[in-house]
Design a protein around this nucleic acid. Structure first.
Lengths: 237, 237
DNA sequence: TAGTGGTCTAGACCACTAA
DNA sequence: TAGTGGTCTAGACCACTAC
């Protein structure tokens, strides 16, 4: 059994998706929801807070919780997103090719990025993502062996995240992304269909676990014409 | 007088900056903070929640609130950031040139982006940002006149955000960003020092007010070599 | 077992909106 | 004025960590 407020949140997301509540109208008041879910007001408020954070509603003091038209801004699955989730939001059917999946001694650069000790080993995974038979994205993943002792090409073919969170029961807590534009490397040129593009958009992703330890560094290298990043940010509180 | 929990939050941020609390150690327990600030536990927890959301701490059940080493990831002023704030985080001294600041009938594209009626007017502001005497960024802002009735070159020279939030007392609530890479337009070529770059990184920014109304659309067009976007994302809850 | 954070409650008072 | 959301309280019980 999950948290009560999370159940209420999920329930209301479902109602919103089923259009029981529609954009530009107000949700039932917190008092009404209290009665409806037979719970306290603070618990209702936690659920509403989640809805607000995820862009479903906007709370307006004195008025109520306004349902936002999420379809207006084709909503980002912002923040911590794996390729698999990302692909589900696209029309095209992407394919993944695993070029490498090896346990190894990290380069100085990677050891530095992952803040590892000299004896620590890492898994290096290199994959390309293709759309319409064009290799568009080159993903290079580095995972600290101390957190992920075992990995296979099959897992990399599917979803590393699903494996890490499902099988290994590690919980991802936060991530830092950095987006820059670089010149293509030799590897980019050999593994991607660059078609004369002079730049590569690089998303550097640092993924942290529940105890604030850094366990993964990923570079996602995109052909610029197919790159699109969407972000939804809410003011604090 | 502000909220009690916000005061506690600010107080603790200050303590963290003054290194009273240091990375990889734990904050005082919620019970201790309760006594220290003479308040209830839920209020302490709201303050800690803010700290967590802003990447200062990581709460670990059964153990405490771990102070995160923010210096490790040169911290983003993530999300809703105006150029002025951004510039403060850079070593270089940037200059702003206002090329245009006019009230006008919007193009179809802008009317569409801002979801305006046919009679609505907008303010169009065009500015370039220079670093080391190179014009690196082209900012094109469109503000609905119904929210911002008045604007001048002087305001645009300084900070539109400061004016909107300070003078007009409008509160910005959330924003959606979209980052793509485009071919330079004629305007890009004439107003920026492109130095042979073939691409422009475009940040499309949709800014919403407290009542979830869209009041500003901005395109921030960056020379790719100087572009860098940082994002910090926390899992929900 | 003691101490930590996570959830939940029932109630209070306040600030804002709208009629 | 009635109804809304925002803040704050004092207490309860639970789940987890460390000893």
């Amino acid at each position: 059994m999950r948290n009560k407020y999370f159940i209420i949140y999920q329930d209301m997301v479902e109602q919103l998706n089923k259009a029981k509540y529609v954009p530009n109208e107000y949700l039932p008041s917190e008092h009404e929801l209290m009665e409806q879910f037979q719970t306290s007001r603070e618990t209702v408020r936690k659920a509403l807070h989640l809805l607000a954070q995820n862009g479903y509603i906007q709370k307006i003091r004195g008025k109520g919780s306004l349902v936002i038209d999420r379809s207006k801004f084709d909503f980002p699955v912002s923040g911590l997103v794996s390729f698999k989730e990302l692909a589900e939001n696209l029309d095209q059917t992407p394919t993944t090719t695993v070029h490498q999946c090896e346990r190894m001694t990290p380069s100085d650069f990677v050891r530095d990025q992952l803040r590892l000790a000299y004896t620590d080993q890492v898994w290096e995974v290199v994959r390309t993502r293709s759309f319409d038979n064009s290799r568009i994205i080159l993903d290079k993943d580095y995972l600290a062996e101390k957190y992920v002792p075992y990995l296979t090409k099959d897992i990399a073919q599917d979803s590393i995240y699903a494996y890490v969170e499902g099988e290994l029961e590690l919980t991802i807590s936060f991530a830092k992304k950095e987006i820059v534009v670089e010149e293509p490397t030799k590897e980019d040129r050999s593994l991607l269909d660059l078609e004369g593009f002079h730049n590569i958009v690089v998303i550097k992703n640092y993924v942290y676990l529940e105890d604030a330890s850094l366990f993964q560094y990923t570079e996602s290298r995109h052909r610029p014409d197919k790159f699109r990043f969407v972000d939804f940010a809410r003011r604090n509180q």
